[in-house]
Design a protein around this nucleic acid. Structure first.
Lengths: 374, 374
DNA sequence: CTGAAAGCGCTTACAG
DNA sequence: CTGAAAGCGCTTACAG
């Protein structure tokens, strides 16, 4: 068992050992090897030439098995790892990918990160991961470039001009990039959910259930992702002879946007207070939808008997509420696989002249929170 | 707008431009600069000596302002970044921290990662992040070592012997480490929630409400974290003259462990079927607690009127269910700050002889899912 | 300010 | 198998 020392965020007291007579070698009977920091030191340690060690390390032919074994054994014993920085200077690939995250606090984004990293690792890439904001993006990209990453991935929604500038910078360094989620950045290779189509599917489905008036929850605002969604709603309504102005209502302006769940619940309250109630509610995300559902239910409204509610992202929480939430699945696995495929096609080759843009079809997942219009 | 090209995971078609007569310079009127890859090239580009450029780059004194400006301007124009690998060979710190995650799919772990990264970045560390399993941990650590990271952090629960071996390896390389969450690894610097105490608080509170029989949800199994929790329960019960055997029941063995929410719901079903029902239920995590709560409610039981349910981790979902879930907050911010403090005390110094272990006190967060025993 | 030189830790011909 | 050498991209004295 390790000894327990409580500290308060300060450095632990360094105890100076002065000549304990009972001192015994720790862990093993051989003396502790010094840290070996170079092939030169290591070669001396094994009693071979630097050149020979290097050849074993790189699996080159023409070596006696006995020599190979000797070196391997010494590597295991000393834990010697050749300096990656020297290796790269000699021309070895860095096998590094830089990943810029809008946030590590939103579940779908982290899920994309996790899956992308798994794919990259299978191709033996390691990842440098940074959360970026508008001000910090320049320095992050410069650091990635100084680390000679082989590609940079952006996951999330960013300030468009900012990322466009970063992408231009990457282009000047012949470094491939890919944007996941944020669609519409000039000259950006992009993989993103087809959000228009997502709303087409949701709205068509609700219209087929007889809904003609819709409350929009959190879909206002300048974000490209929200605007695309609203465009999809408008388009679909138009196809059924309705208009956005007449068939939809947004009360987003009535409440400050804090925690999404509370925001959704507040919105429900406002809709309840309005003269004419909508029969179906489309939320920006699952959290807002769940909040709204709670708001309606607490006021005694039946979901989906009196109002239908649909979410977005198809997170676990959709299954944990009652009734379970209808939502749109982002198809994260397909998204990430497409991203990895595009990157694989660009790394180590001349950059393509035109950006590659791939839209991923969403999957509407119908559950019990939506039903026929009353 | 970028042109839209649909592809199927294959590389984009490379279009060869053959002599369009309308070709115009893109983006600017100057010709596109070649990618500059070294100070030598860059010095030639600005018309200065390599030495001078280097001095500007490193902010050394004795340079004319005019020269400095000239170099800075050229850096902005060309986006030149000095090769980090050469810099490090010349003795510059790597300012890299390696982070080993058990998983990127569990919210509390990702939250720790996010907050730790923010603290590290404030000290201008970049992070190499890898998800590790028992087999892969060796190669990940060796890669971190070859990248000469200045410290390695483990976040989550691991196979003990595996991580102990990795920590020994790091020690041989004089590289500081820190384990967040997994307590009890020999010789490991550790920061972890005091899980025993967490259960002491929950159980004391429930006992004070009159509860005398407890259902344990998902707390069985060999995981150190679960065993610590059970030990805390036993201790507290003993303090009130009760015993684990008589006062608690676990039915975990009756259901396969899949999705936690469904697992919780199934467990509730089994408890409902049993002869004598417990009055309070302690869950491994919030998801299981929410599942159980749903299970009870669907069977017509009132929460907390007839049964009390408490979760663990205090995730957002606690607020989104009805009644809101009593849970234990891990105090992630304090945890991560402690971790960063310990690391800061160890980087660049001789490793301490004894490991530092710091336990973080939990915060019981009482909500409406727990109440007086019926 | 410039220029030539040494050296960080490697790999890779090259001659023994 | 060994050993000496060149060179990757930097920084840092050192002499001009």
């Amino acid at each position: 068992m390790s000894s327990i020392v409580r500290i308060d965020g300060t450095a632990p007291p360094r105890t100076i050992a002065h000549g304990s007579r009972l001192a015994v070698p720790r862990h093993s009977t051989t003396s502790l090897p010094r840290v070996i920091r170079s092939t030169a030191e290591f070669a001396r340690h094994v009693g071979l030439a630097r050149t020979t060690v290097s050849r074993v390390l790189n699996g080159q032919p023409g070596l006696k098995q006995k020599t190979i074994d000797r070196v391997r054994k010494a590597i295991d014993e000393t834990g010697f790892t050749p300096n990656a920085y020297a290796l790269h200077l000699k021309g070895k690939r860095t096998s590094l990918v830089g990943i810029c995250m809008e946030s590590l606090l939103t579940a779908p984004a982290v899920s994309k990160l996790a899956q992308l990293q798994r794919l990259l690792r299978a191709q033996s890439y390691a990842s440098l991961i940074e959360v970026i904001d508008a001000e910090g993006s320049r320095s992050v990209i410069r650091h990635f470039l100084s680390m000679r990453v082989e590609a940079v991935v952006f996951i999330g929604h960013f300030v468009e001009e900012e990322i466009a500038a970063r992408i231009a910078e990457l282009g000047r360094h012949a470094t491939p990039h890919l944007v996941i989620d944020h669609v519409g950045i000039p000259n950006a290779n992009t993989v993103a959910l087809d959000r228009r189509r997502a709303m087409t599917e949701v709205v068509s489905y609700l219209v087929s259930l007889g809904h003609r008036s819709f409350g929009l929850l959190g879909l206002s605002g300048p974000l490209r992702s929200a605007r695309d969604r609203v465009a999809g709603i408008a388009e679909t309504l138009a196809g059924h002879g309705m208009s956005l102005e007449h068939a939809t209502v947004s009360l987003d302006h009535l409440h400050p946007r804090g925690n999404d769940f509370e925001f959704g619940r507040s919105l429900a309250g406002s809709f309840l207070g309005a003269k004419r109630r909508q029969t179906a509610y489309l939320a920006l995300n699952d959290e807002i939808a769940v909040g709204a559902m709670h708001g309606f239910q607490e006021a005694g409204l039946a979901v989906p008997g009196e109002v239908s509610v649909s979410g977005f992202n198809n997170q676990d929480i959709c299954l944990m509420v009652n009734p379970r939430l209808t939502s749109v699945d982002q198809q994260i696995q397909r998204t990430v696989e497409a991203a990895a495929g595009i990157l694989a096609g660009q790394v180590g080759r001349p950059l393509p002249r035109r950006p590659v843009v791939q839209m991923i079809p969403p999957l509407l997942t119908v559950r019990e929170s939506t039903g026929p219009a009353p």
